[in-house]
Design a protein around this nucleic acid. Sequence first.
RNA 1: GGCCCUAUCGUCUAGAGGCCUAGGACGUAGCCCUCUCAAGGCUAAGACUCGGGUUCGAAUCCCGAUAGGGUCACCA
Length: 514
Amino acid sequence: MTIRTRFAPSPTGYLHIGGVRTALFNWLLTKRLGGQFVLRIDDTDSERNRPEALTPILEGFRWLGIQWDEGPEVGGPHTPYFQSGRLELYQKAAISLLEQGLAYPDYMTKEELDSDRKLADNQKRAYIHRGPLRDNSKDDNLIRYRKNPAPIRLRIPENKTLLVDDLICGRCVQDSNLVGDPLILRADGRALYNFASVVDDISLGITHIIRAREHLSNTYAQTVIFEALGTSMPKFAHIPVVNEPKSKKKLSKRDMAKFVTVEVRAKLNSVGFTDEEISNRDDLNPATVAYYRELGYLPEAIVNYLARLGWSLDDKTEFIPIPEMIAHFSLERVNDSPASFDPDKLFWLAGEYMKILPMDKKIAGCLPFLKRANLIQDDPNPQTRALVESIISAAGERIKLFSDIIALARPFLKSTIEIQPQAQEKFLKTPGTAEMIRSFLEKVEMANPFDSTTLDHCLHEFCREKDLKPGKLVQPIRVALTGTSVGFGLFDTFAILGRDESLARIAAAILISG
RNA sequence: GGCCCUAUCGUCUAGAGGCCUAGGACGUAGCCCUCUCAAGGCUAAGACUCGGGUUCGAAUCCCGAUAGGGUCACCA
């Protein structure tokens, strides 16, 4: 029997980092063992459900390369893969439990429940719900329900030890007397997540349920449902949660707004997002995948990073391409304790993947960022493309994120450069600089051909003649050519700019300098 | 509060009783290389939560304390 796993997101409008990791572990195990990975949409809560909120999730997974074998848009033998389209299934299952006396209708009002809960709270004990009809005869319960439909609750058996054999947590036990009777179906026939989830897992033939640790305590009640529905238990693996950076708190979907700090906002601004867009889109947030995509992170880096968050290949390997990951992934090497999300390490990994990215892919990745920054046209002509290529090539390993191209390429794609005030002060305004640049300009004008080798030779010769350290000349020239004191090799810079533009910029700098 | 889970450098981790004077990685600091930056090379600081056992021997097993987290919804 092949394994079947699933990931069941609710359509929230964004793909959460923690969720992706859970999905990834499911996917990796499935690929490793050769089975099907199912995407199922948990949209039972109609209030929260917006159809357009699904697209970002699907797009996110596709971008990451995590392809589902069954689910929305790809279909499969168990269509539909939306819980909203499977309501009948849950209703049937709930009624069948009712008929067997394993569930009962509960006519308690919200007010009654609330006051019971409050009472328990005041007495500092856990509230364990037991509806009045749980021990009533099943026939009578059925008659009452038919006459007057009410919410249906599962009848948790008394004095039993509920057992979850977890692939990661080991054998976990819970006294059934400490588990309240969970609601499984609302009076209007809509199922609740914990019930719908089990019914679907059974109907979809899910063999391994890999999910976040926070679901472990739900699992005890779910084991009762599995048993009541007459199927064998799937294998459970409750993976540790992802914590906030440098924190012991869960990286939660609630309260995500706090991650949009001034630094985050500045990064988003720098790739062209307005403050308005940032506040209107809830996926422009470091807790979502879209954020990293918009900043130009390579998807492979995110997958690699997330896989290593809680899982390790061995005692030293950090860089693990996806095929390798699939070949070696195992639940045995998933850690037992929560892990904090570390943006710094993700950033480093993004750079590592960028280093090995072929040039054509690098160009393809950079172009959209240049367009968004209005540095090139929508449909760049061959000359522009060639220029961009030479810039990317000269930038080398300075590009870690695609968005890095914006700052790096700006001096070459704009006809007028802005000279940074500090750079101007430090490298152009110092005494004697104007004269030095002027005489260097005279020498450079003679350079023929105007290429790296000749210019390199020319500069070193000049420095020897004037008894100058190359650095003393290079920095002012760099500022003259690009407006900043950091950038790529000076001769690459000359070569990209070309003779005329280079000479013009140096001449302009002499005026500023002198 | 009840119940459950977890506990190695700031962070991610290796470690399944002797290979551990605890290894790697990110980050940090310093040095080297160098036309700046990036990359690269070298070096440094930096951890077994605490207390009891078990054992010839414990980061590793057991118990307890402590701390953190999760969960107790007509949310998913």
